[in-house]
Design a protein around this nucleic acid. Structure first.
Lengths: 144, 144
DNA sequence: CCATCTTACTTGCGAAATGCAAGTGAAAAA
DNA sequence: TTTTTCACTTGCATTTCGCAAGTAAGATGG
């Protein structure tokens, strides 16, 4: 764990509680899914995602995720209006959490996106390795 | 996935969205943590847990978790006022999700309960196996 | 250069969820 | 039989959510 980063008032020191306070809402994990799996990087892309997040909630969640060090923001050099949102190392490290949540729901509910699910079931470790590698490539040469 | 169990109106068919709609709030996962790791089974125990959930929220979350098939309720044979809440197979199957959330927060935040965390880091699979086994024992002979 | 369009937001406001304090009713304990 | 305990419910103020309608800065087309 990195130096001096504890949030001021947490309900408890339990690590699960820390995760829940950062990610326990109806939108944050979906935004991270879009970044991790679909490669979304701009406000507009998140807005157009299927579940339909409201503009003010999206702006708030992006601010919060940045404040927690899960994503970062940089101006788009090719378009001054745009901001590029990207996952930090802390953010990409959430991949196993998302993966387990996807696998759990797929086992116990009737859900779509079975292609993705089967790929994850077949070899979880290499699926996660692929996600991490795509992230590393993007992070080394950020040009789209 | 078991027969005919899809909730009526979901924002999308994405399995991650299904998980988020069932568990994406500030309390559900903490209740499940208390059941899974601390062996809590009664309303009173959940209420006294460190984070301090409000009585009406607790009642609501227990109802929701039961409606989703994540926990079940049975009367306590030794005390007619009490109800015994227990994890279903679907509920205990959330253990890997909780584990990954704990490990992620422990890696990136300053959190407590390091004994638990080290145990999980040392051998995640056997940690999960132990949780499942304790659950199976309790479920076979429910007497405390 | 100017009007128009895009993008990333903010603002206002009604509705829903949350949190707190104070009940309530049934069962157990004294 | 009185008092506790337990599992809630109810009321009410505060916060968050969700939708519609702005707005400001930058890009684009003529």
């Amino acid at each position: 764990m990195p130096a001096g980063k504890s949030s001021p008032k947490r309900r408890s020191g339990c690590p699960l509680n820390a995760s829940v306070e950062m990610l326990g809402d109806r939108w944050s994990l979906l935004i991270l899914r879009d970044m991790m799996l679909r490669g979304f990087r701009s406000y507009k892309e998140f807005l157009e995602s299927y579940e339909g997040i409201a503009t003010n909630i999206l702006a708030d969640r992006l601010r919060r995720l940045e404040a927690y060090g899960i994503i970062t923001t940089q101006p788009d050099p090719s378009d001054g209006r745009k901001l590029i949102y990207s996952l930090t190392a802390k953010g990409i490290d959430l991949a196993p959490v998302l993966a387990e949540m996807v696998l759990w729901a797929a086992r116990h509910e009737e859900t779509g996106n079975q292609a993705l699910v089967r790929q994850m079931q077949k070899d979880k470790q290499q699926f996660l390795a692929a996600i991490r590698q795509r992230w590393a490539e993007r992070t080394l040469r950020p040009g789209n």
